[in-house]
Amino acid sequence: MKIRVGFGFDVHQLVEGRELWLGGIRLEHEKGLLGHSDADVLIHAICDALLGAANMRDIGYHFPDTAGEFKNIDSKILLKKTVELIATKGYSVGNIDATICAERPKLKPHIPAIQQTLSEVMGVDEDDISIKATTTEKLGFTGREEGISAYATVLITKK
């Protein structure tokens, strides 16, 4: 069996007038993330990690923000397409370890729903998806609640 590891990172600005989507679920919050798609930073980081592990470039290459077909798209669709893309090279998802950096909203109560949603989209066991949440202790753009970032590390396998 061949294994490969990938790393992904994404950040989006928090703005009024947008819904907040993280890990494929909508969260109640006074601000949402600004982006061409639904701006789900967690899913975007996971997509980049999967594509990087398979040596297939990045999310912007496959789903450019200049393409009208991806305007306001649900990022779960992008994640499903990414899993299909890595499968064209014989890879499948082994496990994911991801961290979301946000001051608010508090994410701990939402982690099980995020894991379940991602599990369904990717067709992997919930136990293979680790989601963590942290703050930056009021430091930087995250601490000032100007944006949210996410990091993801993935393992992919080829039989």
Rank of each mutant, 00 (worst) to 15 (best):
L155I: 14
Q13C: 07
S149A: 10
G60A: 08
L20K: 05
I46D: 06
L50Y: 09
I77S: 05
K158E: 15
S149E: 07
T88A: 08
F9A: 04
K89W: 07
E137R: 12
T135S: 12
V154C: 13
C101T: 06
R144F: 07
T134S: 11
Q13R: 14
L51G: 09
R18K: 15
F63G: 01
V15E: 15
T153M: 14
H12P: 01
Y61L: 00
D40N: 12
L51W: 04
D125R: 07
H36P: 01
A54L: 12
P64V: 01
V83C: 06
A45Y: 06
D38R: 12
M122K: 05
E120M: 09
Y61Q: 02
G68T: 03
L118P: 04
G32A: 12
S92E: 15
K138C: 02
E19A: 15
L34Q: 13
V154L: 03
T142P: 00
L79W: 00
G94S: 11
G52Y: 03
Y61F: 10
G32W: 03
H62Y: 13
E146F: 07
A152L: 10
W21A: 13
G35I: 05
L14T: 01
L33T: 13
H110F: 15
V41E: 04
K106T: 12
I131P: 00
S37H: 07
S119E: 03
T153E: 13
N72V: 04
N95D: 15
L33G: 06
G52K: 04
Q116P: 04
A113Q: 15
M1Y: 11
L14P: 00
A54N: 12
V121M: 00
S92F: 13
I129M: 03
D48P: 08
S130Y: 09
A54W: 10
T88V: 10
T117G: 02
Y61I: 02
K158S: 14
H110L: 13
E146N: 08
G17R: 07
I114F: 03
F141Q: 08
T88H: 10
L107D: 09
L42M: 08
I111V: 13
K81V: 00
H110A: 15
G143Q: 03
I111D: 07
I148D: 01
L42I: 09
K159M: 14
G94I: 11
H12K: 13
D74V: 01
F7P: 00
Q13T: 14
T88G: 06
D125G: 08
I43A: 04
I46N: 06
A152V: 08
A152G: 11
I73Y: 04
K81E: 14
D38V: 10
L79G: 09
I114E: 02
E28D: 15
A113I: 10
D48C: 06
P64D: 01
N72M: 10
A98I: 07
P64S: 01
I59T: 14
C47T: 10
G23D: 05
A113K: 15
I100F: 03
I46S: 07
K81H: 04
L33E: 08
Q116W: 04
I3N: 12
